[in-house]
Simulated scan of single mutants.
Amino acid sequence: MTDKNRQEIHQYLTFKLADEMYAVNVANIKEVLGIPKITKVPKMPPHMKGIINLRGSVVPVLDLCKKFDLGEITVTEKTGIIVTEIFRNKDDGTEEELVIGIFSDEVQKVITIEPESIEPPPKIGVSIDTEFIQGMGHVENNFIMILNINKILTGSEMEEIQSTAVEA
């Protein structure tokens, strides 16, 4: 599926993170899991909690709370891991895929948000990187931050995670 095809899908998996609602396009979602055993790997970045074994594949797990400077995820019975596919265009024009799990305080549901109900990321006026925010979805008089999962990690972070996962 090309990036253009993924952008034409208007369904999003919603989840809570630090009492705020977020969403990720379902085109990037592989599955949702409970919390399996997480193996800590030395020298991973602080926002990486470790790796999980997903049917024989090594999947790094990202704590978005830590990445977004919102504290750290607190694991409860509602905590889940959303297994996502992150895509990045390489210099040679090909697309590279990284499967990564992201913690959520609570997975909610899949909803449809039409493009006309999505506003661009806010311009705050200070130098805050909001490239990972695709937009702000209006749903039932509330805002949902729609994440561009492909922009959550920088290229160097992706490379670091891939090399750590290969060594594990």
Rank of each mutant, 00 (worst) to 15 (best):
residue 7 Q to R: 14
residue 63 D to K: 01
residue 19 D to T: 01
residue 60 P to G: 09
residue 114 E to R: 11
residue 112 T to P: 02
residue 165 A to N: 07
residue 109 K to R: 11
residue 61 V to D: 02
residue 44 M to W: 08
residue 109 K to P: 01
residue 85 E to G: 11
residue 110 V to S: 01
residue 104 S to K: 02
residue 106 E to S: 13
residue 117 S to Y: 07
residue 118 I to L: 03
residue 7 Q to I: 06
residue 120 P to D: 10
residue 115 P to K: 11
residue 98 L to T: 13
residue 9 I to A: 04
residue 56 G to E: 11
residue 56 G to V: 12
residue 145 M to G: 00
residue 99 V to A: 02
residue 161 I to S: 06
residue 56 G to L: 10
residue 59 V to P: 04
residue 42 P to G: 08
residue 43 K to N: 14
residue 146 I to E: 06
residue 139 V to H: 11
residue 148 N to W: 05
residue 33 L to C: 11
residue 101 G to Q: 05
residue 131 E to F: 02
residue 159 E to W: 06
residue 144 I to E: 06
residue 74 T to L: 12
residue 129 D to M: 05
residue 15 F to N: 03
residue 137 G to E: 03
residue 25 N to A: 07
residue 91 D to K: 13
residue 102 I to R: 03
residue 83 V to W: 01
residue 145 M to L: 10
residue 83 V to M: 07
residue 57 S to P: 05
residue 40 K to A: 12
residue 145 M to I: 12
residue 117 S to L: 07
residue 115 P to Q: 09
residue 4 K to H: 12
residue 32 V to L: 08
residue 164 T to C: 05
residue 164 T to S: 15
residue 99 V to E: 03
residue 165 A to C: 12
residue 86 I to W: 01
residue 23 A to S: 13
residue 127 S to W: 03
residue 163 S to C: 09
residue 117 S to M: 03
residue 142 N to R: 15
residue 25 N to V: 03
residue 139 V to A: 05
residue 51 I to L: 09
residue 116 E to D: 15
residue 151 K to G: 01
residue 61 V to S: 03
residue 100 I to E: 05
residue 168 A to H: 10
residue 110 V to Y: 08
residue 159 E to I: 12
residue 80 G to I: 01
residue 25 N to W: 06
residue 140 E to L: 11
residue 28 N to V: 03
residue 159 E to P: 04
residue 78 K to N: 15
residue 106 E to Y: 08
residue 155 G to C: 02
residue 139 V to W: 07
residue 132 F to G: 02
residue 36 P to N: 09
residue 79 T to R: 00
residue 147 L to H: 08
residue 92 D to V: 04
residue 23 A to M: 11
residue 50 G to S: 03
residue 45 P to A: 14
residue 120 P to C: 08
residue 52 I to D: 04
residue 69 D to T: 09
residue 54 L to N: 10
residue 79 T to A: 14
residue 122 P to G: 06
residue 33 L to M: 15
residue 97 E to H: 07
residue 122 P to R: 01
residue 60 P to H: 04
residue 14 T to D: 11
residue 37 K to C: 05
residue 7 Q to Y: 09
residue 126 V to P: 00
residue 133 I to H: 08
residue 166 V to P: 00
residue 149 I to D: 04
residue 54 L to E: 09
residue 115 P to D: 12
residue 132 F to A: 02
residue 118 I to N: 03
residue 116 E to I: 09
residue 12 Y to L: 10
residue 39 T to W: 07
residue 7 Q to D: 12
residue 43 K to W: 05
residue 140 E to Y: 10
residue 167 E to M: 13
residue 10 H to N: 14
residue 136 M to K: 07
residue 81 I to K: 01
residue 162 Q to H: 08
residue 141 N to K: 14
residue 159 E to Y: 12
residue 49 K to L: 00
residue 103 F to D: 01
residue 102 I to K: 00
residue 114 E to C: 10
residue 41 V to L: 13
residue 73 I to P: 03
residue 112 T to Y: 10
residue 25 N to Y: 06
